[in-house]
Design a protein around this nucleic acid. Structure first.
Length: 646
RNA sequence: GCUGGCGUAGCUCAGUAGGUAGAGCGUCUGAUUUGUAAUCAGAUGGUCGGGGGUUCGAUUCCCUCCGCCAGCUCCA
């Protein structure tokens, strides 16, 4: 057999000599394609351009236009980093170095830790190696031989990986004469293809992601096909930094975290408090509109409750320490569900009573390890917009649909147009780590699936990702600068109804166990507040802005008029502040702009004489003179319609 | 919790090869009556994160605790 047949994406077929490579195929198509080629897809599998084809194949040449090529590109950059590290610090041992969503990292084991200056040195070294124009060469090595080699090199982590993952013959990649790495590949043909990268940070990382293992130093970096794309990415990082909710929280005087009180505990200042009230009021209103009942439950309960619910054992690590009171033991609540269950269980329920939807803005406390707190996004005390739905099997699908509709409305209200969902299912019972019967799992998973279908929501199935007590749907939103955040969740729970012996009397006069699901839409009010803050970059829409209007008299002559304007707006329910300091308008405007106040009303002699206001919007600048009534009805509209931006 | 970095005035930051600190903004006082992003002048302000040690002397060096930041692990 001296030739092979290659099928191209357009369906055309060509003959090539046996042993041809994807690069040969690309060259035959066009020199320009051969130049742009980075990697190939051969019979569905990614191939190095120089890896010989084995028999008849379908071949697709991938260039910088294919997302897979970027992954390979970054993976190759990670190898370049490892090669640079070994040249500068030969005693270093290698961990793993994969591409990530935004770049790549490589883990290293070394006595002395890397410093930020090392990153610069390493970058320079990487460019130096890049210029050597070295090929990434694929080699096939028998397992035993390879093991012996890496053992001799002292690359004990590579040995461990080979031991676990390698076939009898495995692949490895060289980069120049001195670098070799156990790696599945594929890689770029050579370093000259790498055009733009940057090392970003150093961090600790556990070997194999297990905190029982030793910790290494991870170097993060990113790489793009062009310097321009890299610059854009770095700019986006800067942008993200600018809208960091922790920074905005201080600048806009919204909230704080006090050392004296403890980490992970949030203080909402007046302005943040105002926004939070609006968020909570909106949610409560929705609850009532949508057939939920509002309940209030305590913050602590006897340990007996937590023993019944199972938290005492299974959630102990996340709970605050127990306290002794009157010979009984109490604990702060980490979840609201047992309380809502007690309300359900307080009396006998008929099938006619169902569904019962108990909602609460319930504040819970969870012990988080000291290194994990993060602004408003990860805290030790937070308020969930929590609700528990108790229903019959025939009701469950409609319930899920209305939960998801509720979630979608919530997202829309806050100006999130893009979101998607993940449906986490069990493993079919294989491992025994899941609670609940196969029938229950089937019923629940089906209901979740059908509900997403009915609503036309695309839900990615995450097999074996469910909670042990039931399947769930998580909604992830995409914010103004493209970041994804996990927000709403709808989770089934087969465990708690059983543990608490929940029941209802059915049509048949017999006792049945109700289905129960947990759902939270904001998730945590604190976290949601933080996400919103970053989404809006601090410029809350008019309906949420803590201060909606600042009125600015120009001189003392117009102070009285400005006071009247302020009073009129306040009376109309517009959150208005009078800036009567003896300062220039420029100064007042600057300050209001920085505080991201939506509207500024300048009141001078002309306006006072005509009963008008000179309107300035934080985004659009000077909008000219308007009658106060006209302005009022305009802002009223923005508030009532909850216009997301303005 | 772990690895690394950091902690100086309300905020942003400078500084001291070990001799108890400085700017801008803010705050206060006075003057200025001002038209769409900073009026001027003066004053105020710090146990240099807490504690301990070394030293004649520590904000600086060492130890320890607390907190923050980037990650890891975990998670709403």
């Amino acid at each position: 057999m001296s030739s092979i047949r290659v099928t191209l994406p357009d369906g055309s077929r060509h003959e090539y000599p046996a042993g041809s490579t994807p690069l040969d195929v690309a060259k035959a198509i066009s020199p320009r394609l051969a130049e742009a080629a980075l990697v190939a897809r051969v019979n569905g599998e990614l191939y190095d351009l120089t890896r010989p084809l084995e028999g008849d194949s379908t071949v697709e040449i991938l260039t910088s236009k294919n997302p897979e090529a970027l992954e390979v590109y970054r993976h190759s950059t990670a190898h370049l980093l490892a090669a640079a590290v070994l040249e500068l610090y030969p005693e270093t041992k290698l961990g793993i170095g994969p591409p990530t969503e935004t770049g790549f990292f490589y883990d290293f084991q070394r006595e002395t830790p890397f410093t930020p200056e090392d990153l610069e040195k390493l970058e320079a070294k990487m460019w130096e190696i890049q210029k050597r124009n070295l090929p990434y060469e694929r080699k096939l090595t028998p397992k035993e031989e390879g093991l012996a080699k890496y053992r001799q090199m002292g690359e004990y982590m590579k040995c461990e990986l080979i031991d676990e993952k390698a076939d009898a013959v495995f692949t490895e990649y060289t980069l120049g004469p001195n670098f070799i790495d156990f790696c599945r590949g594929p890689h770029l043909p050579n370093t000259s293809k790498i055009k733009a990268f940057k090392l970003l940070s150093i961090a600790g990382a556990y070997w194999k992601g297990d905190e029982k293992n030793h910790q290494m130093q991870r170097i993060y970096g990113t790489a793009f096909f062009t310097q321009k794309e890299l610059d854009e990415y770095l700019k986006q990082l800067e942008e993200a930094k600018k809208r960091d909710h922790r920074k905005l929280g201080v600048e806009l005087d919204l909230f704080s975290i006090q050392d004296l009180a403890g980490p992970g505990l949030i203080f909402f200042h007046p302005k943040g408090g105002q926004v939070r009230v609006l968020l909570e009021d909106w949610m409560r209103e929705q609850y009532l509109k949508r057939g939920y009942s509002l309940v209030y439950t305590p913050h602590i309960a006897r340990s007996d409750l937590w023993k019944t619910s199972g938290h005492y054992n299974f959630y102990a690590d996340n709970m605050f320490k127990r306290m002794e009171l009157d010979d009984a033991e109490y604990q702060l609540k980490p979840m609201n569900c047992p309380f809502h269950i007690l309300i359900y269980r307080d009396r006998q329920r008929s099938y006619r009573d169902l569904p019962i939807r108990l909602g609460e803005l319930g504040t819970v406390y969870r012990y988080e390890r000291s290194g994990v707190m993060h602004g408003l996004l990860r805290v030790r005390g937070f308020t969930q917009d929590d609700a528990h739905i108790f229903c019959r099997p025939d009701q469950i699908e409609d319930e899920i649909v209305s939960c998801l509709e509720f979630a979608a409305d919530t997202l829309k209200t806050f100006g999130f147009d893009r979101y998607d969902a993940e449906l986490s299912t069990w493993d079919g019972g294989a491992s025994g780590k899941y609670d609940g019967s196969p029938e229950q799992w089937a019923l629940a998973e089906n209901a979740l699936k059908k509900a997403t279908e009915r609503l036309g929501i695309k839900a990615e199935i995450m097999a074996d990702e469910a909670a042990f007590y039931g399947p769930k749907i998580d909604v992830k939103l995409v914010d103004a600068i493209g970041r994804r955040w996990q927000l709403s969740t709808v989770q089934f729970d087969f465990t708690l109804p059983r543990r608490f012996g929940l029941e209802y009397v059915g049509e048949d006069g017999k006792r049945h166990q109700p289905l129960m699901c947990h759902r939270a839409l904001y998730g945590s009010v604190e976290r949601f507040f933080g996400i919103l803050l970053e989404h809006y970059a601090g410029a809350f829409p008019v309906w949420l802005a803590p201060i909606q209007v600042v009125v600015m008299p120009i001189t003392d002559r117009t102070l009285e008029y400005a006071q009247r304007v302020t009073a009129t707006l306040k009376e109309a329910g517009v959150r208005t502040q009078l800036d009567d300091r003896k300062e220039k308008v420029n100064f007042k405007i600057r300050e209001a702009q920085l505080q991201k106040v939506p509207f500024m009303l300048v009141c001078g002699d002309r306006e006072a004489a005509d009963g008008t206001v000179s309107v300035r919007n934080r985004r659009h600048g000077d909008l000219g003179v308007q009658s106060l009534d006209a302005f009022l009805s305009e802002i009223r509209k923005l508030i009532d319609e909850k216009t997301p931006y303005e």
